[in-house]
């Protein structure tokens, strides 16, 4: 059960001369939710984007070390597009395309070669149901996705990510722009998805980390200060800096 899904060893990452990640080592277990917490600019997004190689888009970004996905090095001899299919991502700001809800969700499957309308219909519905947004949008699935509320858009983004059937789901502050109701919907959804996916969620909300995650990693200035079971890290932080941060005494 507690299989290693992702194994990160000795990752150093530079943006030009600036070192954003310093010797990161961690194991992300399968079918668990791992939370990344830490003050702004400490490298949470950077590490997240290293896991599906979205950092490749940044021209002056250099990375060394090793990241294994099911034992396979993702920075060597791998089809990046296939990697990104396996490791899906939900961004901080909803980033739906200016198309219909249907086309947004069908975008991934179409990209990976599914043409049959019957199959696409099925995938779209299944993904929207999984993202707990189907009932709200089923009557206007051919309407523009951009007409939805922020919380709805974010759940469509999750549906869009699920539609390609990833194994890992990276979520970068998925609720930071949302109201409490939408936030709790997404938290329930994340817990629901845990059975089938390995989830990594970045959050600035301590309660959220406690509510949804199994393990928590606390980042500071590009380093991992502490990485343990969520319960123990929040009840008995080992490091003074972790304690300061989670009790709110830290910038």
């Amino acid at each position: 059960m507690n299989k290693e899904k992702i194994k990160i060893t000795g990752i150093d990452l530079y943006y030009g001369d600036f070192q954003a990640l310093k010797n990161i080592n961690m194991i992300l277990p399968q079918n668990k939710i791992t939370a990344f917490i830490g003050p702004s600019g400490c490298g949470k997004t950077t590490l997240l984007k290293s896991l599906n190689r979205m950092n490749d888009l940044i021209s002056d970004c250099r990375i060394s070390g090793e990241i294994l996905l099911d034992g396979q090095n993702i920075y060597e001899n791998i089809d990046v597009n296939l990697l990104r299919k396996r490791v899906g991502m939900v961004f901080q700001k909803p980033n739906l395309f200016p198309m219909s809800i249907y086309d947004n969700v069908a975008y991934g499957p179409r990209t990976h070669g599914i043409r049959s309308k019957v199959m696409l219909d099925e995938i779209v519905e299944k993904s929207l149901v999984r993202a707990v947004i189907w009932d709200e949008v089923k009557d206007r699935i051919k309407k523009s996705a951009l007409s939805l509320s922020g919380g709805q858009q974010q759940r469509i983004c999750i549906a869009r990510a699920l539609a390609v059937e990833p194994e890992v789901l990276l979520m970068d502050e998925p609720t930071s722009a949302l109201d409490p109701v939408s936030t709790s919907k997404i938290e329930e959804l994340v817990l629901e998805l845990k059975n089938d996916y390995t989830i990594i969620i970045v959050t600035h909300n301590m309660q959220q980390a406690v509510r949804v995650s199994d393990k928590t990693a606390f980042f500071l200035l590009g380093e991992i200060v502490e990485y343990r079971d969520t319960e123990s890290i929040f009840s008995m932080p080992e490091d003074k800096r972790t304690e300061d941060y989670i009790t709110g005494r830290f910038g």
Binding site: L57, R84, F91, N95, F97, Y107, G108, R160, V164
Partner: peptide
């Protein structure tokens, strides 16, 4: 970014 993250070329 959104499209690339879905595995599109």
């Amino acid at each position: 970014e959104g499209s690339l993250a879905l595995g599109a070329t």
